[in-house]
């Protein structure tokens, strides 16, 4: 997949000082969160349960309004010009956010029309996206009849349809077989090479280590470490890998 119409931009995402405290709670779910991303960069957002990962994605996609701070996507202020900013983003939710009684092609066509893509272009993009995730032969199968891995791939395909510059992926490989996971990771790397930036949350540390160019570890709403996988492990020579480092930073206590 190519993205010929992308404007040349050096900063895809620029978020600064994002803070969010939910009603009826005292401590912020996310505090002073800042992040900038460049084209083709994959940033892994790691953290235990309740660390603030989903809140961060909600704020960065405009699903939540921050108490303070701002988000710019491809130069557009998300709070002041949400429609323009949203043109450039794609969201792959943790759940299979598709209509189960519609076919894969019908799902993609619907979301494509929401981006005002139609006619021949829509058909071509639907076919290209389905091919990209290996679902060409199942285009006319209903999502409800798909395996978990196929549903995950279809979930990804919908987010790619409008050729976004920035993808938000919330545990996109949760609960899928190794083959589908491998394919999804390969495809994400391919997208990265073509210039698509990605913010990636996962509990599989080895996945993050494999595909992320930068990793941010957050806990209790605060960023506690940030850097490339190599930089992070070098900074903690007593840790053999990112997994050990993650436990060192966030502790071994269970998070409920």
């Amino acid at each position: 997949m190519t993205h010929p119409e992308f404007p040349p931009l050096t900063t895809i995402l620029w978020a600064e000082g994002l803070t969010k405290t939910y009603a009826h709670t005292r401590t912020p779910a996310l505090a002073s969160f800042s992040l900038s991303m460049e084209p083709g960069e994959i940033v892994g957002l790691l953290g235990p349960n309740g660390a603030g990962k989903t809140t961060a994605i909600s704020l960065l996609t405009g699903l939540l309004a921050p108490d303070s701070g701002s988000v710019h996507i491809c130069g557009a202020d998300l709070s002041k010009n949400p429609r323009k900013a949203r043109q450039w983003i794609g969201l792959v939710p943790q759940h299979i956010a598709l209509y189960p009684s519609l076919t894969a092609a019908e799902n993609l066509s619907y979301f494509g029309r929401m981006y005002r893509i139609n006619g021949r272009e829509l058909k071509e993009r639907v076919n290209a996206c389905l091919e990209f995730v290996g679902l060409s032969n199942s285009a006319h199968g209903r999502i409800a009849a798909f395996s978990g891995g196929m549903q995950r791939r279809a979930n990804l395909a919908v987010a790619l349809l409008h050729q976004p510059r920035l993808l938000f992926l919330d545990e996109p490989t949760a609960g899928v077989d190794p083959q589908s996971r491998n394919m999804i990771l390969d495809r994400l790397s391919e997208l990265s090479r073509s210039g698509v930036s990605m913010l990636y949350t996962t509990h599989y540390i080895e996945e993050a280590e494999k595909i992320c160019s930068r990793i941010a570890v957050i806990d209790e709403g605060r960023t506690i470490a940030q850097g490339s996988p190599g930089e992070l492990t070098q900074a903690h020579p007593d840790c053999n890998d990112l997994g050990q480092l993650f436990l060192r930073l966030t502790g071994k206590d269970l998070r409920d």
């Binding site: 699903l63 429609r83 299979i96 956010a97 979301f111 987010a159």
Partner: peptide, 11 residues
């Protein structure tokens, strides 16, 4: 199922 969240990130 998160479909609404996806819809609400659309322009």
């Amino acid at each position: 199922d998160g479909t609404l969240a996806r819809l609400r990130t659309l322009p």
